[in-house]
């Protein structure tokens, strides 16, 4: 009995260590690397940075385009999130709560569209963007990122709306709300956790989006974080330490953001509305 429990406990702990190691490992490695000197980088023992150095960070911070790139990414990710949240919420509402004929077919279509590998659409999209004269602009990135994030957003939010108690929406209608009034006053506030979840997913997607950003951006005027990190090696040999430091600096905002909103997602808001 005790032996069995002990075995189970050991199993759990090793599973936990494995999962945590898998998730944290690369980030920890990156963090450690970012404090190593160029010379220490290529030797494995010692594992820890032998002389600790902040030179990499200094180099990153002194990089003149850093702020610009961060701001670009923030604007692109923020605006894309807002766009796909607004459009997606409206679409999801009509596809789930309003009884639209063929809603499941539309949803299936949305999913099918999102299955296209982005690489297949890059060149036509590039042509469209160039035709519109939006090359190297944040607007183009915002438009494209919103479009790519929309299917995911619609699916997540449609699922969320469908699981709200339908009587609550009905009650709002009887109490005098129009369809859109009930949507804004009742459905949206009740779906706050779902909206936050969607927002974070879209934000992360737009923050990390690489392929489109690489294709469309030319200068630092519209360069985003992933592209900027990839562009680092351009000068002499590959500066791994500085890349690591740049990754850390540029990922931190999003990690902070997720931690900040996490509580809102977990909170159950619908409790207490209907019987049992």
């Amino acid at each position: 009995m005790t032996l069995h429990e002990g075995g189970l406990w050991g199993l759990r702990v090793s599973a936990l260590v494995l999962v945590v190691g898998f998730a944290i490992g690369p980030i920890a490695w990156q963090l450690i690397t970012s404090f190593k000197t160029d010379a220490a980088l290529v030797r494995l023992p010692p594992f820890w940075p032998e002389p600790w150095t902040t030179a990499n960070y200094e180099a990153v911070v002194q990089e003149p385009s850093l702020l610009r790139v961060l701001m670009n990414t923030l604007i692109v990710a923020g605006c894309s999130t807002a766009c796909s949240l607004v459009l997606g919420a409206c679409a999801a509402f009509s596809l789930s709560v309003l009884r639209i004929r063929g809603a499941q077919w539309i949803l299936a279509g949305v999913l099918a569209v999102s299955m296209f590998p982005p690489i297949a659409t890059v060149s036509p999209l590039y042509l469209v963007v160039r035709f519109l004269g939006l090359r190297d602009s944040l607007l183009a990135l915002i438009l494209l990122d919103s479009t790519f994030a929309l299917p995911l957003g619609i699916w997540v939010m449609a699922n969320f709306f469908r699981n709200l108690p339908p009587e609550v929406y009905a009650a709002a209608r009887v109490d005098g709300c129009s369809v859109s009034g009930a949507f804004v006053r009742v459905v949206l506030p009740l779906s706050a956790p779902g909206l936050f979840a969607t927002a974070i997913l879209v934000f992360i997607f737009a923050w990390n989006e690489f392929l489109l950003a690489l294709t469309i951006t030319v200068t630092t005027a519209s360069r985003t974080v992933p592209v900027a990190i990839a562009m680092f090696p351009g000068l002499h040999e590959i500066p791994w330490g500085e890349i690591a430091a740049a990754s850390i600096v540029m990922t931190t905002p999003i990690v902070v953001l997720v931690f900040f909103f996490q509580r809102r997602i977990i909170e159950g808001l619908t409790m207490g509305s209907v019987k049992g």
Partner: peptide, 13 residues
């Protein structure tokens, strides 16, 4: 009209 729902349907927020 006003309606009392069988399942109450209060606004939880």
């Amino acid at each position: 009209v006003s309606l009392v729902f069988q399942s109450y349907a209060l606004y939880p927020h």
